[in-house]
Write a protein that binds this DNA or RNA. Structure first.
Lengths: 229, 229
DNA sequence: TTAAATTAAATGAACGTTCATTTATTTTAT
DNA sequence: ATAAAATAAATGAACGTTCATTTAATTTAA
């Protein structure tokens, strides 16, 4: 009986030949990023050790430096490969959507939650909030690659509703934050035990309800572009 | 001409005698907490070195351990001494308030912002979001001493509006989060450069407007406690 | 045989905490 | 009052870890 295979690095099927490890140049990066996302989300960027990522990915710390220049580079890659693609997908979904402004806004929030909130990606906002000030280059990357595009997406949905007279003519940059804030907080709460018992789905539906009626056009509203009375 | 007094620790007036330091048993703790809050907020808990706090407070690292058992204890003291008292103050203000439900909600949010958002204390939510999972005891302390009391405060304001028929009968625990989220995010944004150009006061007024109308009672609402039709 | 992939060990800086020692202040005894 | 004695504040160096990154040695695959 063989000893338990506790720290064998191979994951691919190995039949007869007992090799200590196998060369898997193409599979490594993905496995490293998978492990890194899990750990970054659970413990934060600083608190995650490169060696932990390595162990979770079935390699040694040294190996990681063959694929990524440094720890920051790992997180950038995680964002680039797993988060950014979903934004493109989201942009397409919105372009195809057919319905009212309020319906579009609800759709955007629910889709956002399905694609991020309900997945491991929900941990990234907390990560960036926590580490942005200590890793400015990381913050810049995230702002340009993720936030800017995500907010454009929300902005277009709100503008759509304003144009149809269903939302009041709020300042777009501010309104975007009003929509973004409760959703981002939901992701933060999901990845912290700050709010143990909260039913996030219930919360989100209430957010949608509140936003749609809170942003809704009202009798006395002046039209977009009009000057003060 | 004397050499510049670069690292002299004394802050009290010293006339002739050049002393390396003075004993200031009663002044030290406050100065240490002041410095600690600044640094914790700016850099996060983990990233703040005890020696940095010491230097900023005009003492040495060793001195800090005369007053606080460890780094976590410093943060607890900061919260206990600077944040918790403002909650008591807030509770009183609300008890005295005279006005409608929507007016009370707006008052609570503006007061909260004046007392926390506009001060250094605004950095604490970011701090807790960032470190809660790595310092469970700190998280528990914050949840019990700060969050629980703060949410009771919000809850009572919303309940007041529901009782007067001005707000619709939302689930209280969820509604509290709907109110809390955009304010907490404002504090987070204020302490990160995630949203560089945002006008937070404008944002907050829009949040208030949106919440009041979003939570507002509407013709078809069933009364609190009624069963489904 | 060789080059690329991977490991394992080494490096060096950082940091929370401890503690022996120094120094300022307070108390005591005269 | 005063000076010696006692107390307690504060220092600063050192310890013991931890951890990102580097380097050298090994293993694999072609």
């Amino acid at each position: 009986m063989k000893p338990e295979n506790t720290d064998c690095t191979e994951r691919c099927p190995v039949l007869e030949t007992v090799t200590r490890w196998t060369r898997r140049k193409d599979a490594r990066p993905g496995e490293i990023l998978d492990a890194a996302l899990d750990l970054f989300v659970a413990r934060g960027f600083s608190a995650t050790k490169v060696e932990d990522i390595a162990r979770a990915a079935g390699v040694t710390a040294g190996t990681i430096y063959r694929y990524y220049a440094n720890k920051e580079d790992i997180l950038k890659a995680v964002i680039r490969e797993s988060l950014v693609p979903t934004l493109q997908e989201g942009e397409q979904l919105i372009a195809q959507f057919d319905g009212s402004g309020p319906e579009l806004l609800a759709f955007v929030i629910r889709t956002w939650w399905q694609m991020h909130g309900a997945t491991k990606l929900s941990g990234i906002p907390k990560l960036m909030i926590a580490e942005a000030s200590n890793f400015p280059e990381l913050a810049r990357f995230h702002r340009e690659e993720v936030i800017a595009r995500g907010e454009n997406l929300i902005a277009s949905a709100i503008q759509f509703g304003i144009d149809r007279g269903e939302f009041r003519p709020v300042a777009l940059d501010v309104a975007v934050k009003v929509v973004v804030a409760p959703v981002v907080m939901a992701m933060v709460w999901k990845n912290t035990d700050i709010c143990p018992g909260l039913d996030l789905d219930h919360y989100l539906e209430e957010v949608i309800e509140t936003l749609i009626h809170g942003l809704g056009a009202r009798p006395g509203d002046k039209q977009n572009g009009e000057s003060e009375a």
